[in-house]
Nucleic acid binder design. Structure first.
Length: 438
RNA sequence: GGAGAGAUGGCCGAGUGGUCGAAGGCGCUCCCCUGCUAAGGGAGUAUGGGGUUUAUAGCCUCAUCGAGGGUUCGAAUCCCUCUCUCUCCGCCA
C-alpha cells in the first residue's frame, strides 16, 4: 500500500510513476473521495467532541448530585445526526481503502521502464553453458524414460499441472531442499522456520495477494466456514509462496531495533491456481499447481533494504553456483514487476532443451509497501515507530531446479549425473539411471 | 466433539455504566542523591488517524481495553455474534 500522504501531496508524480507500470490511478474518484472525507471527517469529529464534552458534564453533575436535564436535552438530539455522519464517513473511508489496496507499488528509480519481458535488463551471467555432442532431451523425456517422472498417474490422481516424482528422482528433489536449507542456515545465517501452509485473509492482504488476486489462490472451505464471502467468517487459503507466512510474522508488531535485520528461510509447498495461464508451459514441471520452494525473507531497516536486496540475490545465486548451473540475473522492467515490488531481480537458469534461460528465482524489495499493509514497524534510533522494509526471494524454486539438473546434467546414454554437492544427500549416489523393476 | 473459565498498556494486574487512555506494581528512559556493585528520591513511558502548520516541532481533536455489531447523553464495564487462550473429559498423528 502506498502512503496516502504521498497521494495527497504529490498525486501527479505518483500517477506518472504508476503509469510506467501500466496502472491507471483513478485520480478523479480519489480527489472527490478525499474532499468528501475531509469535510465529513471534520464534521464528524466536531460532533463527537461535542457529545464527549456534554457527556462528561453530565457525569460530573450527577456525581455531585446536581440536576443535569438541561445538558441532557441539549445533547440527546445529537445521537441520530452523529450516527449518520459516522456511517457516511465509514463508507468513504472504506472506498478509499479499497482504492489504496489495489494500487501497486511504485518502481524504484533504478528500475528500467519497459513494456514487457523484452525490456528487462541483464545484470550479469555466471557459468559455462555446456555443449552437447549428442541429441539432447527435455526434462520430461529424460524423467519419463528413466521411469522417475510419471505425469499420467498424476493426472489420474489430481489432474493437469500436477506431477508424480519417483524413486531416486524423488530423493534428489528432497536432497535439493535439504541442501538449500542447510546452505542458507549454515552459510548465510538465516533462521529456519516451519510455517503454516494455510493462512487467513489478513495475511494475504498483508503481502499483497489480496484483495486483487483472489483468483490465483486456492481456497479451503472447512465445515461451515469459508475464506471469502463474509468478511467476518473464517477459512483458509493455501499459500502461493512462503513469503506470505514468513513476512506476516511481523504483522502488527513493533520490533526493537536490536532485532534487525531478520532473515527467515522456509521450505514449503506452494499452491497456485494458474488462472489465466492456459496453454502456457503445459508440458513438464515448469508450471504446476503445487511445487516446492525454499523461500528467503529479509525484514530490515529502511536504510538498508537495497543493500539487503543485493545480499538476497547473492544468497540465491550461491545455490546455482554450488550446483554449477549456468544462470543470468535480470533487473525486471516496470511492467514486468510484481504488484508489491519496488525493484525485482529475476535469476534465470539455463535450460538446454528450451535453449534459453528460465526464471528460477525472483528477489524483490517491497520497501514499506507490505509493511504499511501489515502495520509492521520498528522503533527507530529516536524511539519513533517507523515502517520496516520487507524483501523476499526464492532460494530456489525446487521443481525448476530439478528440471535444470535433469537437462544440464544429462548424459548420452540417458542417465543423469548428480551434482557433487548433492551426493552426500543421496547416500553417495552419483548417477540417475534405469534400474529394474520400476 | 462435550463441560467450564478467560482475553485490559512491554509484562503482571485493578477496574461491572460517568470526571478512565485506563489504579498499582515490574520493566525501561532521563534527572537528582549516594565516593564503588546495593539502596533512595523525582519526572517520563501505548498505538493509529484527522485538522492546523514550512515542519517527522507545537497546538486542537477523534478512535482504539481480543474482533465486529448493538443498547445508552455516556461502555473496558451491559447485550449479541465471532476469534483465540486455558482447564477437565472424549478422540487423535
Amino acid at each position: 500500500m502506498l502512503d496516502i500522504q504521498l497521494l495527497r501531496t504529490d498525486l501527479n508524480h505518483v500517477t506518472k510513476k504508476l503509469a510506467s507500470r501500466s496502472y491507471r490511478f483513478p485520480i478523479e474518484k480519489f480527489n472527490q473521495l478525499e474532499a468528501d472525507r475531509k469535510k465529513i471527517q471534520t464534521q464528524t469529529q466536531e460532533l463527537q467532541a461535542k457529545r464527549n464534552a456534554a457527556s462528561k458534564l453530565i457525569g460530573q453533575a450527577k456525581s455531585k448530585g446536581e440536576d443535569a436535564t438541561s445538558i441532557f436535552t441539549e445533547v440527546a438530539s445529537l445521537g441520530d445526526e452523529l450516527k449518520q455522519f459516522e456511517i457516511i464517513l465509514g463508507q468513504i473511508q472504506s472506498e478509499l481503502q479499497n482504492i489504496l489496496l489495489e494500487v501497486p507499488n511504485l518502481p524504484h528509480d533504478s528500475v528500467p521502464e519497459g513494456s514487457g519481458e523484452e525490456d528487462n535488463q541483464e545484470v550479469r551471467r555466471w557459468g559455462q553453458i555446456r555443449s552437447f555432442n549428442f541429441e539432447i532431451k527435455d526434462h520430461v523425456n529424460i524423467g519419463e524414460s528413466l521411469k522417475l517422472l510419471d505425469f499420467e498417474t498424476a493426472v489420474k490422481l489430481s489432474g493437469a499441472r500436477f506431477s508424480l516424482i519417483k524413486g531416486s528422482l524423488a530423493r534428489l528433489h528432497r536432497a535439493l531442499t535439504q541442501f538449500m536449507l542447510d546452505t542458507h542456515v549454515q552459510e548465510h545465517g538465516y533462521t529456519e522456520i516451519y510455517a503454516p501452509y494455510l493462512v487467513n485473509r489478513d495475511s494475504l492482504q498483508g503481502t499483497g495477494q489480496l484483495p486483487k488476486f483472489e483468483e490465483d489462490l486456492f481456497v479451503v472451505n472447512t465445515a461451515g466456514k469459508t475464506a471469502h464471502g463474509d468478511k467476518n467468517t473464517t477459512g483458509f487459503y493455501l499459500i502461493p509462496t512462503a513469503e506470505v507466512p514468513l513476512t506476516n510474522i511481523i504483522r502488527n508488531e513493533i520490533v526493537a531495533l536490536k532485532f534487525l535485520p531478520m532473515q527467515f528461510v522456509a521450505h514449503t509447498p506452494c499452491f497456485r491456481s494458474e488462472a489465466g495461464s492456459y496453454g502456457k508451459d503445459t508440458r513438464g514441471l515448469i508450471r504446476q499447481h503445487q511445487f516446492d520452494k525454499v523461500e528467503l525473507v529479509h525484514i530490515v531497516h529502511p536504510d538498508q533494504s537495497y543493500e539487503a536486496l543485493e545480499t538476497l540475490v547473492n544468497h540465491a545465486e550461491k545455490i546455482l553456483q554450488k550446483l554449477e548451473l549456468p544462470y543470468r540475473v535480470m533487473t525486471l522492467c516496470t511492467r514486468d514487476m510484481g504488484f508489491s515490488a519496488a525493484k525485482t531481480y529475476d535469476i534465470e537458469v539455463w535450460l538446454p532443451a528450451q535453449n534459453t534461460y528460465r526464471e528460477i528465482s525472483s528477489c524483490s524489495n517491497c520497501e514499506s509497501f507490505q509493511a504499511r499493509r501489515m502495520q509492521a514497524r520498528f522503533r527507530n534510533e529516536n524511539g519513533k515507530t517507523t515502517l520496516l522494509h520487507t524483501l523476499n526471494g526464492s532460494g530456489l524454486a525446487v521443481g525448476r531446479t530439478l528440471v535444470a539438473i535433469l537437462e544440464n546434467y544429462q548424459n548420452a546414454d540417458g542417465s543423469v549425473s548428480i551434482p557433487e554437492v548433492l551426493q552426500p544427500y543421496m547416500n553417495g549416489l552419483d548417477l540417475l539411471r534405469i534400474v529394474g523393476g520400476q
